[in-house]
Simulated assay, not measured.
Amino acid sequence: MPISAEELLSVARKYWRSDHEFDDKPENSPETERFHDTWEQALKKLDEWRALMGELRVELPHLNIGHATATCDPCFKCMVYTNQQPVSSDPQEDEPRSRLWTVVGCLSVLAPVYTVYGVQYDYKGREVRGAARVFFEPLPAQMQALAQVVARKIEARYGAKALPRKIAETRVPLIVHRKEPPETTLFHALFTPEPENLPL
């Protein structure tokens, strides 16, 4: 049975506050303590997450698989990314332009849900140019097959359910790091407030 937005908001409220009451206090809020305790338990399963990435390396040997988990975010995270692909061949440019596609798989440590999204980075030479573009379902065609592989692996290993985009975009009255209402969504509370921030 699918989890509703209301149920997920109830879960998220256990870990994120709607005020800044503890910002200048030496002690953590009860929500922060709960978050740290949850991560402490989740880290005992880190080897299982690494095993999932090993399965991805076997199934996608021609691509790069990266570990992107950060315990400030409420999820395990992995990346499948392409090599940089040329996007222009203007002889007047001093440095070639290229593009890198990344498919990101996230398994929440707060609720039995996962998501897969895409990020596009444009480069000039070796430098990223402009802001990264984040894509949610439906993903661009060049990301769809990779996303299906990542989703299948997460579902098979963890039994988690994909969080539908409509529910993921539900606005929540919570503060998740620097993301504050009215911008905060269930996606931010269950996965990451900065989906474009990846260790490339």
Rank of each mutant, 00 (worst) to 15 (best):
A42K: 01
A156D: 11
A189G: 01
Y81N: 08
C75A: 10
P30M: 05
W16V: 13
H188P: 10
E21I: 14
A42C: 03
L110S: 06
V128M: 10
T170C: 02
I65C: 13
Y117T: 02
T185M: 05
E55T: 00
Y114N: 08
Y158E: 15
P181Y: 07
K153C: 03
L100R: 06
E93P: 00
C78L: 09
K25R: 15
E194F: 01
I175M: 04
A147F: 05
E194S: 08
V109M: 14
T170D: 07
S98C: 04
L146V: 08
P173E: 05
K77T: 09
L198C: 04
M79N: 11
D122L: 04
V109N: 08
T184Y: 02
E31M: 10
S108K: 01
S98T: 15
Q148V: 07
A131S: 11
A42H: 06
R133D: 14
F135G: 10
K153L: 10
L110M: 07
L186E: 15
G125W: 04
T69P: 03
N64F: 05
P26D: 03
Q85T: 02
R165K: 12
P193E: 13
S18V: 06
I167M: 09
F136M: 07
E48I: 04
V149T: 15
V109G: 08
P96E: 08
E95N: 06
M143L: 13
V109L: 12
L63I: 03
F35M: 03
P96W: 06
